[in-house]
Amino acid sequence: MQPVIESNKGLIRGISAKIKGVSRYVMNDIKENKVSYLLVMPYWIIFFVFTILPVLVAIVLSFTYYNMLEPPQWVGLHNYLQLFLDDDVFLIAIKNTFVFALVTGPISFFACLLLAWMINELKPKIRAFLTLLFYAPALTGQGYFIWRIMFDGSAYGYVNGILLYWGIITEPIQFFQDPKYIMPVSILCVLWSSLGTSFLSFIGGLQGIDKSLYEAGAVDGIRNRWQELWYITLPQIVPHMMFGAIMTITQSFAAADQLIQLAGFPSTDYAARTIVSHLMDYGNIRFEMGYASAIAVVLFAFMVITQRVVQKYLSKLRD
């Protein structure tokens, strides 16, 4: 036994020496770059407390039962098992979220890209006007409000009124109650207001491309605008597309507010139930915080995985 203990002691001594070495290294770095740390920290501490810490807390809570009255109880993987094995509504929510994200995400991303590209060649005044027009719905964040009036379920709703008047339908369609219409109308409304930060980023990126690249490209045998787009323009704005992809993925996976505003909460037959509204149901109404946190963690995992996949494909475009 003696030698084992001896070697353990040696190991511990080694580790503690290493820790001391590392901490001295860290302290030295902090001392040397005191000003840098001083400048970063006021922002970063606030950022950490209100953005990173909540995610860490959510991860821990997701392994507990917590109703905010009693202290959290450790339940292991129970919440996750229940989510995927027992909770039929959650499966509906996952399906809706994916349908929603797979439709709105790519369409919104390419709409941002295409419109930004088309606007880019126009005269500055027209460009400024169209940028404002396309960005206005996202800027104001009041979209659902207008769409509710337009697609109102009564004969006075604008769309219903017109369809009735033209004799296309005989009675008003309940756009926001009929499960057949909830998703399509909501998707349309969300797409309408989805030209946000990514759109601006693309416009900025396109403006920043060096014009001489196009002349050089023409010399090298590029014959039309589509080749130019593919071989010169897109590779130049890959970084902007990476950024735009993050913003779009987050936006389309986290859809809930607009759907709740449009279709009500809870919606008919859970037709507009998404992962986020499922989370809000458990978090804000049933106060099952552990379970709600597990939902949040699952959502976050989906977003990160999607983002990694998209990033991989986008970086291929660069070559």
């Binding site: 950022f47 953005t51 909540p54 807390v57 959510a58 809570l61 986020v276 809000m280 976050f300 990160v304």
Partner: peptide, 16 residues
Amino acid sequence: SLMFTYQVTAIPNYLI
């Protein structure tokens, strides 16, 4: 954290 939406962090945020 550009990928965090406020709904995901809403509950812990309230607790904090």
